[in-house]
Write a protein that binds this DNA or RNA. Structure first.
Lengths: 341, 341
DNA sequence: CAGTTTTTGAGGTACGTAAATCAGAAATTC
DNA sequence: GAATTTCTGATTTACGTACCTCAAAAACTG
């Protein structure tokens, strides 16, 4: 049988109350007594029954997720995953509130963060915008002892407890490496389409991509970045124009959203001149394009994993427990048409 | 506040006992009463508190993991992950027993499975060997109502409840696609190193790999499969011999274990003639080889994820709960030197 | 309508831990 | 050595659900 606090008390020759004091770090236990109890715990291999403990604590976890009301497939999918997780997690004493704010708006994010002070949530997850005022708000919440997790886009070196998202620099490097190898090292011109260079994850992806091309594939030249603002219509126009004006484009790296427009532009190009294309985020559109050969590779972050990881981490932080780092690492999925799930 | 059974009882105008009967599907409730209770549950949005329920049930989950006593890095890593999970899961009322059996031995696996009848475990996970006698044993355990999960290697169309592992056919296809693209479609000779063609996952990987080469890269010719029995020494000998006898090998796909030997053999080849190499499983050896350029890509299955997924699924099955399919899909990681974790 | 069966109510105990109270013991201080 | 402070023990209640018993009410049966 699994040992309980009673067994510890008996084995250590102390009372239940003392065991409780040791277990929960309450004061009023002499050093020697504490060591006796800890010895018994180690000897019997006692592990606290979290179900019973949570029940006794009667604690519920109020978490808030702040998401941009973006209408691209990825963010919509993230919202879906989150709502699914909310339903399931209510069975585990968690109450998750979802707050939507206008996208790309640091002021709105700060306001939403400030508003959380009143509710005193057990934790907050949010898609970070890298701006000084956001950092300041995060510092204040951290000072108030509220655990915070950044989601999808990070705020490095700020007081957040964890980042639930991919390493965007590594993603960019991976894209660069694939592009270089797929183009077999021959001299060629590559175009890069981004959403906005103001967004941190896009900047990092570009940085990683460019670094690898420079280091390992000097034969590949890149054109100036096309900023499509994650807007399918704008992306289509920009890419179409670029393909017309620079017919020798042999590769395209799309590191933001709005891939619907990219795919449109590519479809109107003759299949002979179709460039090598690497894009981000597996959506209905990119999946289709991948299987029909319009896109060659898709780098993906799994929104469901990110959401579940954020929830797990918030809960662990709220409980003061360590997180299993390996489990919480969000991986960069590489999809070719051959390993589509 | 979160509603409890008491709230349901009050709201439906029945007693606690009746609510309990409805919730747990016990007999002795009239149709109309049952509907009243279900209405109240829906209206109040009641969700059973799993922590309290598990505590009350006093149930502990006895799971058995049957692992081959293989000494390659991957299986050793899997064992480590499992032992780590065992420690953590004991806090969640799970007791996981690990049984080691000789590798590649259907008889030993059957014996280990048979032995589980007595213990009546709440679930079994095992690395499957595709043999008729194993299938028969699985049928008997399934008939006894014991949930089963195959780990790493599957037993398709058998009575197991779930497979916690990668799609090996897709892995092989991915390797084939990468190899074809990395070699840029030029005519070349490719060698394949496997552990044993008797093991299902190796067969499937080869099948997927060959299919893609045939379909998409007809210029690539493959040599007869080298069976290295996952043994570093044998692998080194075979690969060394092949590289000597067939100097125009431009690609190697190592779909099994024993990559230490492969790497050794590659290191003694001049870097000019070094072929394009794709291997499986990220270990200390393959990681090193990847970062120094000896290996070009590694396809990986995350042992930790597989173990945790198997445990989650077994628990869900034991509780009669549905599994979140998306969460339990084990992904094929593709690692280049640029996205090493 | 009496007898039988089914349904329901009321109440209790248990699970393992948290948290509190209060009295008594031990250690420390003056 | 008395007074004070610091520890410790014993006991109790609570968390939300599961599961049990027993009695009473209601619904059927012939």
């Amino acid at each position: 049988m699994k040992p309980t606090v009673h067994d510890i008390a008996r084995s250590a020759g102390v009372s239940l109350a003392t065991v409780d004091r040791v277990l929960n770090g309450r004061p009023g236990v002499r050093r020697v007594t504490r060591q006796k109890v800890e010895g018994a715990i180690a000897e019997l291999g006692y592990v606290r029954d979290v179900a019973a403990a949570n029940l006794a604590k009667g604690r519920t976890y109020a978490f808030t997720f702040i998401l941009p009301a973006n209408d691209n497939s990825f963010m919509l999918g993230l919202g879906d995953e989150l709502r699914g997780a909310v339903v399931r997690s209510s069975a585990e004493r968690m109450q998750i509130r979802i707050v939507n704010i206008p996208p790309f708006d640091p002021g709105a994010l700060v306001a939403a963060l400030e508003a959380e002070f009143d509710g005193r949530p057990a934790g907050i997850a949010f898609v970070a915008i890298d701006a000084p005022e956001v950092r300041a708000a995060v510092e204040r919440l951290a000072a108030a002892g509220i655990p915070m997790v950044t989601l999808v886009s990070d705020l490095p070196e700020a007081a957040r407890d964890h980042y639930a998202g991919i390493d965007n620099m590594a993603a960019g490097r991976t894209a660069g490496s694939l592009m270089g190898r797929f183009l077999a090292g021959a001299p060629a011109t590559v175009a890069v389409v981004a959403g906005s260079m103001l967004v941190r994850d896009h900047r990092e992806r570009l940085e990683g991509f460019s670094a690898v091309l420079q280091e390992q594939f000097p034969g590949l030249a890149t054109l100036p970045v096309l900023e499509g603002r994650d807007d399918p219509v704008l992306v289509e126009a920009l890419v179409g124009k670029a393909l017309n004006e620079t017919p020798d484009i042999r590769g395209i790296y799309s590191l933001g959203a709005g891939n619907r427009g990219l795919i449109q532009a590519l479809r109107s190009v003759g299949s002979l001149r179709r460039p090598m294309v690497i894009a981000h985020e597996l959506t209905a559109f990119t999946r289709q394009a991948l299987s029909d050969g319009t896109i060659d590779a898709v780098l993906n972050q799994d929104a469901g994993h990110e959401v579940r990881s954020a929830i797990r981490v918030l809960k662990a932080k709220a409980d003061g427990l360590p997180v299993i780092a390996a489990q919480e690492r969000i991986r960069i999925d590489i999809f070719l048409k051959d390993n589509l799930p």
